[in-house]
């Protein structure tokens, strides 16, 4: 599907064509999953995709058929992404009370969540290769194939990403 196809489907949807609209939402859902897979923790992707689909539904009248569809969609996706990141930042600011000692499982969950929060603050290509190589155990070559980055770029992104992660963990980067 090209931008022109999506554009045509959205124009039809604005006129009330439910069949094409359903097809369009399915396509957009798949695109949004890929978009957020590189930018958000996996547990948040589904919720965010649904939220964006709702936003697209509510704001479909703002799409101007004279303009390309891609930038309109990307702007909404980015807006919701920034919104999520802000919400995550706000959530990490909440203090955990001393009165609730965490067992091992909770601690692991908190560590995983903190790591995802930190990863979300890296550039998407950096976070993506760190997830693949350092967390999922893929080789550099496999990560390069999966992401479309060169092997050298994967190495550079891992190196820079980890350097930034440690700076973030020490609270040195704002």
């Amino acid at each position: 599907m090209t931008d022109a196809d999506w554009r045509a489907m959205m124009i039809a949807a604005q006129s009330g064509n439910a069949v094409l609209y359903r097809q369009l939402l399915g396509e957009l859902g798949a695109w949004l999953r890929r978009y957020y897979a590189r930018r958000l923790p996996p547990v948040m992707v589904d919720d965010t995709v649904q939220e964006v689909l709702l936003a697209i539904h509510e704001k479909r009248h703002t799409y101007d058929p004279k303009q390309a569809f891609g930038p309109w969609l990307a702007a909404i996706a980015r807006y919701k992404w920034v919104d999520r990141i802000r919400a995550m930042k706000a959530a990490t600011m909440e203090e955990i009370s001393e009165a609730f000692p965490a067992d091992d499982h909770t601690e692991k969950m908190q560590t995983a969540r903190s790591l995802e929060v930190l990863l979300s603050r890296l550039k998407p290509p950096q976070a993506e290769v760190i997830r693949l190589v350092k967390l999922q155990g893929l080789s550099i070559e496999e990560a390069a194939t999966r992401t479309g980055q060169t092997i050298a770029l994967v190495k550079v992104n891992i190196h820079r990403g980890i350097a930034k992660l440690s700076a973030l963990a020490q609270g040195g980067d704002q």
Binding site: G16, Q50, H57, H61, T62, Y63
Partner: peptide, 15 residues
């Protein structure tokens, strides 16, 4: 959700 949104679809006046 997609089914529901498609079902709720109404023509809109463009901004």
């Amino acid at each position: 959700l997609i089914d529901q949104l498609a079902k709720d679809l109404k023509p809109v006046r463009r901004r």
